[in-house]
Computed example of a mutant assay.
Amino acid sequence: MQTKLLEQGVEITSALTIDELDEVKALGFNAVICNRVPGESDDFPEEASYRHKANQLGLAWVHIPVKPGEYSQEDIQAFADSLAHLPRPILAFCRTGKRATHLWAYARRLSDQCELTTLFAAAKEAGVDLEEHRQALESQSA
């Protein structure tokens, strides 16, 4: 498992296995945000077993399932609420890390109007290009 920093206390990673949640805990994370849709691939048939394992490990767990590129205001608000209330550090994941990064950027714009240059730089450093979302991010407001 490789994590990438988005901001202090928030990192992303690609698809996690249930067993990797032990490593998540050992690395010092306190919370996990999952953006995978149950059944989207063979390696993620359902979410309940992940939630159960996270709870056993004492990790806060939030599931905000989204399809790539389909981010509703409710999804963005849920991610923003998670960033505001979950104990840090937080690890967000999806299949590749893109959805988690996209939701993070939208949530940051929604909650504190974070500058686009800051969001784009952090996402780029994490290996995710936000360019296709520029217009929507520019219009995102609290």
Rank of each mutant, 00 (worst) to 15 (best):
residue 39 G to A: 06
residue 78 A to I: 05
residue 44 F to G: 12
residue 64 I to L: 02
residue 113 Q to G: 15
residue 112 D to M: 08
residue 66 V to Y: 02
residue 84 A to D: 13
residue 75 D to L: 01
residue 57 L to G: 11
residue 68 P to W: 14
residue 95 R to A: 07
residue 65 P to E: 01
residue 108 R to C: 10
residue 133 H to P: 01
residue 114 C to H: 04
residue 57 L to R: 08
residue 104 W to A: 04
residue 73 Q to N: 13
residue 24 V to T: 08
residue 78 A to F: 06
residue 25 K to R: 15
residue 63 H to K: 05
residue 105 A to D: 09
residue 83 L to G: 05
residue 84 A to M: 09
residue 21 L to C: 03
residue 122 A to K: 00
residue 8 Q to I: 01
residue 131 E to R: 11
residue 112 D to W: 02
residue 97 G to Q: 01
residue 83 L to D: 04
residue 60 A to H: 14
residue 38 P to Q: 03
residue 3 T to V: 12
residue 78 A to C: 05
residue 5 L to C: 06
residue 135 Q to M: 15
residue 102 H to A: 15
residue 39 G to M: 07
residue 100 A to S: 14
residue 137 L to S: 00
residue 25 K to Q: 13
residue 35 N to T: 01
residue 28 G to L: 14
residue 23 E to M: 09
residue 43 D to E: 09
residue 51 R to Q: 09
residue 104 W to N: 03
residue 138 E to Q: 11
residue 46 E to N: 10
residue 111 S to H: 09
residue 92 A to I: 07
residue 108 R to Q: 13
residue 36 R to E: 00
residue 33 I to W: 01
residue 27 L to E: 08
residue 97 G to R: 02
residue 58 G to Y: 07
residue 49 S to K: 13
residue 115 E to I: 07
residue 121 A to S: 14
residue 2 Q to V: 03
residue 89 P to Q: 09
residue 92 A to F: 06
residue 104 W to I: 03
residue 129 D to C: 01
residue 39 G to R: 06
residue 124 K to M: 07
residue 31 A to W: 00
residue 8 Q to F: 00
residue 122 A to C: 04
residue 55 N to D: 12
residue 59 L to V: 05
residue 48 A to Q: 09
residue 110 L to V: 05
residue 32 V to Y: 00
residue 134 R to A: 11
residue 85 H to M: 02
residue 56 Q to G: 11
residue 104 W to C: 03
residue 114 C to M: 14
residue 114 C to R: 11
residue 77 Q to H: 13
residue 14 S to H: 12
residue 36 R to Y: 00
residue 15 A to L: 11
residue 34 C to K: 05
residue 19 D to S: 14
residue 6 L to C: 03
residue 48 A to S: 10
residue 123 A to K: 09
residue 46 E to G: 12
residue 139 S to I: 15
residue 54 A to N: 09
residue 134 R to W: 10
residue 12 I to N: 02
residue 110 L to D: 02
residue 81 D to F: 01
residue 124 K to A: 14
residue 33 I to H: 00
residue 60 A to M: 14
residue 96 T to R: 10
residue 63 H to C: 10
residue 105 A to N: 07
residue 110 L to Y: 04
residue 111 S to E: 09
residue 133 H to M: 15
residue 116 L to M: 10
residue 34 C to I: 12
residue 5 L to R: 10
residue 54 A to T: 06
residue 105 A to Y: 06
residue 2 Q to M: 07
residue 118 T to R: 15
residue 23 E to G: 10
residue 4 K to V: 03
residue 133 H to E: 15
residue 55 N to S: 14
residue 48 A to E: 08
residue 52 H to Y: 12
residue 43 D to F: 13
residue 30 N to Q: 11
residue 29 F to M: 05
residue 116 L to Q: 05
residue 1 M to W: 11
residue 95 R to I: 01
residue 25 K to N: 11
residue 2 Q to E: 13
residue 70 E to S: 13
residue 141 S to M: 11
residue 63 H to G: 11
residue 106 Y to K: 00
residue 49 S to W: 04
residue 113 Q to E: 15
residue 116 L to Y: 13
residue 18 I to R: 13
residue 52 H to D: 15
residue 23 E to F: 04
residue 43 D to S: 12
residue 76 I to P: 02
residue 81 D to A: 05
residue 136 A to C: 04
residue 102 H to L: 09
residue 71 Y to S: 02
residue 28 G to W: 05
residue 77 Q to W: 08
residue 42 D to M: 11
